[in-house]
Measured scan of single mutants.
Amino acid sequence: NKASVVANQLIPINTALTLIMMKAEVVTPMGIPAEEIPKLVGMQVNRAVPLGTTLMPDKVKNYE
């Protein structure tokens, strides 16, 4: 099972992601793969992401 990116804290809307905000966890359904964490640093979320929520591609601005 592959790990996904999960919010390590509440991430407010329009916040630029940092390493400390994210952790890798095996979750269902799968979100953004954990190996993409370095790519996500500096990207902004387009909505608030509660603690423990899986980061889905549609929650990150300009994620492809």
Rank of each mutant, 00 (worst) to 15 (best):
V49C: 09
V45L: 08
V5R: 01
A34N: 03
P12S: 07
P38Y: 10
V45Q: 00
V41L: 09
K2M: 12
K2V: 13
A7Y: 06
T18R: 09
M22R: 00
D58K: 04
N14R: 05
S4D: 02
L17C: 06
P12K: 08
R47C: 15
M43F: 10
P33W: 08
V60Y: 01
Q44C: 13
V27M: 06
T15G: 03
N14W: 15
L17K: 00
I11M: 05
M21K: 03
E25V: 13
K59I: 15
N8Q: 11
V41N: 00
N8H: 06
E25G: 10
K23V: 10
I13V: 13
T18H: 03
L40V: 02
Q44V: 14
P33M: 06
K2D: 09
I11L: 01
K23P: 04
P57W: 15
T53N: 08
I11E: 00
K39P: 02
A48H: 11
E35W: 14
A3W: 09
V45Y: 00
T28Q: 12
Q44D: 03
N1R: 12
P57T: 02
V6H: 01
N46D: 07
T18V: 07
E35N: 13
K39Y: 14
G31Q: 05
M30V: 11
N46T: 14
N8F: 08
K23F: 07
I32G: 00
L19V: 09
K61I: 15
V45P: 06
I13G: 06
V45D: 04
V27Y: 05
P29C: 09
L51N: 12
L10G: 07
E36N: 10
I20C: 14
K59F: 15
V60C: 05
T18A: 09
L40Q: 01
Y63D: 02
V5M: 01
L55K: 03
V26E: 08
V27C: 08
K2R: 14
L55Q: 03
K2I: 13
A48L: 12
G42I: 07
Q9W: 08
A34P: 03
I13M: 13
L40Y: 02
A7Q: 01
T53R: 07
K61A: 10
M56L: 08
S4C: 08
E35D: 13
R47Q: 15
N14A: 07
Q44T: 13
V5Q: 03
T54S: 02
M30G: 09
D58W: 15
V60A: 01
N46I: 14
E64V: 15
D58Y: 14
N8L: 08
T28S: 14
L40P: 03
T18G: 04
N46A: 11
A34L: 05
G31W: 05
T54G: 03
S4N: 01
M30F: 12
E25L: 14
G52M: 04
L51M: 15
P33Q: 06
T53V: 11
G52S: 04
S4T: 04
P50A: 11
N14Q: 02
T53S: 13
I32N: 00
N46C: 14
E64F: 13
L51P: 14
M30E: 12
L40R: 02
K39T: 11
E35H: 13
K2S: 12
N14Y: 11
M43P: 00
I20G: 12
G31R: 02
P33I: 04
I11G: 00
V26D: 07
M56G: 07
Q9D: 04
A16G: 07
M43H: 09
A24C: 08
Q44N: 05
K59H: 15
V41W: 00
K23D: 05
P29T: 05
K61E: 08
S4V: 01
G31D: 00
I32E: 00
M56V: 06
V5W: 06
E64L: 15
N62G: 15
I37Q: 03
N8T: 15
Y63K: 01
G42M: 04
G52C: 08
G31K: 05
V49H: 08
G31V: 02
N1G: 14
R47G: 12
E25M: 15
T54Y: 05
V41T: 04
A34I: 04
A48C: 13
I32S: 02
E64H: 14
A3R: 11
P38V: 08
N62I: 02
E36Q: 11
A24V: 08
K61C: 11
E64T: 14
A3N: 05
A7D: 01
V45K: 00
M56D: 07
V41Y: 01
V27A: 06
D58F: 11
A48D: 14
N14D: 12
N1V: 14
P12W: 08
K61N: 10
S4P: 02
I37G: 01
E36G: 02
T53P: 02
N14T: 05
I11C: 05
V27I: 05
P57Q: 04
P29N: 04
E36W: 10
E64K: 14
T53L: 05
E64W: 13
N46H: 08
I11K: 01
S4W: 05
P57M: 05
A34F: 06
K23G: 09
A7M: 04
L17D: 01
L17W: 03
V6I: 12
A3C: 12
K39N: 13
A7V: 06
L10F: 15
K59W: 15
P57E: 03
P12T: 07
Q9H: 04
N46M: 11
T15S: 09
V60N: 00
E25P: 03
I37C: 08
R47A: 15
I13R: 13
P33T: 05
T54F: 06
A16V: 14
V6L: 06
V27Q: 00
P50C: 09
E25N: 08
A7R: 01
P12Y: 08
K2F: 12
Q44I: 14
V6G: 02
M22N: 00
K23R: 15
K23C: 09
I13A: 15
M30P: 13
V45A: 02
P33N: 08
L17H: 00
P12R: 08
V26N: 10
N14I: 06
V26H: 12
V45G: 01
L19S: 07
Q9A: 09
M56N: 05
P50H: 08
V45E: 04
V5K: 01
N62T: 06
V5P: 02
P33H: 06
V60W: 01
A34G: 07
M56S: 14
L40S: 02
M22D: 02
T54H: 01
I20H: 12
N62V: 03
I32R: 06
I37M: 12
K2H: 13
P33L: 10
K61G: 04
Q9F: 08
P57H: 06
K39A: 11
V6W: 05
M30I: 11
N1H: 14
V6A: 02
M43V: 04
M56A: 06
N62P: 02
M43E: 00
P38W: 10
N14P: 00
M21I: 04
R47F: 11
